[in-house]
């Protein structure tokens, strides 16, 4: 077994070269290169988690914006609704007011017309009375030869006309 039979002759060289080459492996590869490799992995993992977090944040923001938009939209709709109702209401009130003024105008005109008619009728009645009284005076004068005064004729006519 060379491991034992050559032990005395070769142990120094074995230990020496192992320390050299394992030392090189440790310092050059283990300490020099491995941390960089692991750093790359860590960076990648970080980037992935960052990207995921950013995507999550973007989704939340989009949800919030959509919610806000929906709220605004609902408000706008409600305001429009109110506006329309108000306009309708106002228009109805205006119409009513105008109708009321028109009605009063018509009523006034009617009253005036009625007054005029009554006036005309009274005037006509008075004229008829005058004419009838004159006619009565002249008829009485011609037939009976009586001369009756104006007031008596007028009284008699008024009795007959009513």
């Amino acid at each position: 077994m060379p491991q034992i039979s050559q032990l005395a002759a070769t142990y120094a060289s074995q230990v020496f070269w192992l320390l050299i080459f394992f030392g090189l492996t440790y310092f050059v590869i283990g300490r020099g290169m491995v941390p960089k490799v692991m750093d790359t992995v860590a960076k990648r993992d970080k980037q992935i988690s960052d990207d995921l977090a950013a995507a999550e944040a973007a989704r939340t923001a989009a949800d919030e914006q959509e919610e806000a938009w929906r709220k605004r939209e609902n408000e706008n709709r409600a305001r429009a609704h109110d506006l329309i109702a108000e306009a309708k209401n106002k228009a109805a009130l205006e119409t009513e007011a105008r109708l009321a003024t028109a009605q009063t105008g018509i009523d006034a005109k009617l009253e005036e017309a009625e007054a005029r008619i009554a006036d005309a009728r009274a005037k006509a009645a008075a004229e008829i009375e005058d004419v009838a009284a004159e006619a009565t005076q002249s008829i009485v004068a011609r037939i009976a030869g009586l001369n009756i005064d104006d007031a008596a004729a007028r009284n008699a006519v008024r009795k007959e006309l009513v």
Binding site: A9, T10, A12, S13, Q14, F16, W17, I20, F21
Partner: peptide
């Protein structure tokens, strides 16, 4: 000490 560069090294 013999530090020969051997086949092992």
């Amino acid at each position: 000490y013999n530090l020969a560069f051997t086949n092992s090294a």
